[in-house]
Design a protein around this nucleic acid. Structure first.
Length: 198
DNA sequence: TTCAGGATGTACT
DNA sequence: GTACATCCTGAAC
């Protein structure tokens, strides 16, 4: 496994969003458990000109501060009173773009992930819960145990990072509009959501 | 298999 | 007060 480089993240946001599909997101938790998932759904948020992006219009607040870091940092924010969302910051420092990680498949630490989500071991999950374990951005953070504690972490560090699998899986890439941004006027229609075809 | 309703904190009008 | 890059449950189909 090879950890993704800074250069990977400094590139165009849509390119990074597509290429993150199939990559392995790794989190070493507070007790040194290694949790890992394969990314299978992403969305691109392309900065100051994108009405769906939190930094639209160069809006700089305590929340959006992480977006202005160099590509390869984590942007994690709290939403709907109970969920965290994980984004991978892209492009150079000062360009507030990111890729939202919207879905994944468990790869390592199945029991830790299941316990984070439902408080029981993986084998005790019913079929419905197994199938939909990490298929949403809030679920992904919940399963890995990510919170605002991990906001702004450098993905080139050793707590939270992304690896390219030795054997890259082969799959078709689906494209659609982004989810849950109905307020974003013309940006509603941008084809910035990418997912592994099932 | 789809669907409505409720949960819940923080930032902003 | 309202909006928010959501998820769970349980009931209807």
């Amino acid at each position: 496994m090879e950890k993704l480089s800074r250069e990977f993240y400094l590139r165009d946001t849509v390119t990074v969003a597509r290429e993150l599909l199939g990559m392995r997101l790794v989190f070493i938790d507070g007790q040194d458990n290694r949790l890992a998932v394969e990314i299978n759904e992403t969305e691109a948020y392309t900065g100051v000109s994108d009405k769906a992006c939190h930094a639209y219009g160069d809006k700089r607040t305590a929340r959006t501060e992480a977006l202005y870091l160099a590509g390869g940092h984590a942007y994690i924010y709290f939403i709907y009173g109970m969920y965290y969302m994980l984004n991978v910051v892209t492009e150079p420092e000062g360009s507030p773009c990111a890729v939202l990680l919207r879905g994944a498949i468990p790869a390592e630490g199945h029991d830790m992930i299941a316990r984070n989500r439902f408080g029981i071991n993986y084998a005790s999950l019913d079929a419905r819960r197994k199938k939909s374990l990490l298929d949403g951005p809030g679920k992904l953070c919940s399963g890995l145990g990510l919170t605002k504690e991990q906001n702004k972490l450098d993905l080139l560090g050793d707590r939270l990072f992304i690896e390219r699998p030795d054997m890259s899986p082969s799959f078709a890439i689906g494209v659609s509009k982004r989810i849950g941004i109905d307020y974003a006027e013309e940006a509603v229609h941008y084809p910035y959501r990418f997912f592994q075809q099932r």
